[in-house]
Every structure is written in C-alpha cells, then in structure tokens.
C-alpha cells in the first residue's frame, strides 16, 4: 500500500501529465474486470492493487446507455475503493438504486476518463506484480506461474 504522502506526490504529477499528447492507458473499466490469472491463485485475487501510479485524465464521449448496460457487471466496492485510492471521491459507497445524470457523469469520469499511465498492479493474494508501462499492463507470466 502507498502511504498518504507518496500518494499525494503521485497525484501532483497529474497536472504535468495532462500536457502530454494523449495516449491510451489502463482505465478503471478494465481494472474492475481484471483478476490475477497466475497458477493456483483463485481466491482473493481481485482487485489488483495499484502502486506508484502516474495518472492522466482524458475526455471520452459520454454514453449513458453503455453505462447503464455496464452497471450490473461492476464490482462496486472494488471500484469505489480504487477510485478513492487514486484520489477520486465522487462515487457513493453504496451502489445507488436511482441512476440520475450527475451520478452517471461521475461514473463515466471514473470508469472511462481516469487513465493509469505508469506504475504497477499487485495481486492481493499471490503478490504477483503486473507492471504498467506506457499505459499497457504486462500480463505475461513466467513458466512456473502458468495454470
């Protein structure tokens, strides 16, 4: 886990990052679907913990229909926890029943507009580290880790 001071430092990097040309990154929409796939790592392997992240925000087209269709797939607690870890507190702790426009806008921002550019993801169970570089997570396993 990152301590608060370190986290703040990472978040300060945001302003500088946003000046860079846009590239693709890991977004929370895929992070929320991603569990560890190493051998015999079957329980408690989700969500992967972000570490030393460099964030970037990039606008995406708002599509309420897609979000509504996607809602049932979301592990809500994992999403809120990860979003808070990355410094975004706009989502409520409990998944709301009513989907109003403000909520959907916040959800859209968290799912599709926060990009993790650099850093790593660590499995909470087996501690396998998936490094992220240039926004592409390296999901390759060593031979002895293949299931």
């Amino acid at each position: 886990m990152m301590d608060v001071e370190e986290e703040r430092l990472c978040l300060f990097g945001i302003a500088d990052c946003s000046l860079l040309p846009p590239t693709i990154m890991v977004r929370l929409i895929t992070h929320n679907l991603l569990a560890c796939h190493a051998k015999d790592c079957n329980a408690n392997n989700f969500p992967l913990q972000f570490k030393d992240v460099k964030l970037e925000f990039r606008e995406a087209d708002f599509n309420p229909d897609f979000l509504k269709g996607f809602m049932p797939k979301i592990e809500w607690k994992a999403l809120v926890d990860t979003a808070r870890e990355l410094g975004d507190t706009s989502l409520p702790l409990e998944q709301p029943e009513m989907l109003d426009d403000d909520f959907l806008k916040n959800l859209h921002h968290v799912l599709l507009e926060i990009h993790v550019e650099e850093g790593s993801m660590t499995c909470p169970n087996c501690n396998h580290v998936y490094p992220i570089s240039n926004g592409i997570p390296n999901m390759l396993l060593a031979e002895h880790e293949i299931g």
């Binding site: 796939h37 995406a60 997570p137 390296n138």
Partner: peptide, 18 residues
C-alpha cells in the same frame, strides 16, 4: 491512438478477466 485498453498478454496462458 486507438481508443481501447491494451494488454500485453499471452492468450495461451489464459485471461484473468472476471
């Protein structure tokens, strides 16, 4: 600059998606 999220992954090792 494609829009999708990319992963460096060997599909023969399997996916970790929920």
């Amino acid at each position: 600059e494609v829009e999708g999220d990319l992963f460096l992954q060997d599909i023969g090792q399997g996916f970790g998606f929920r």
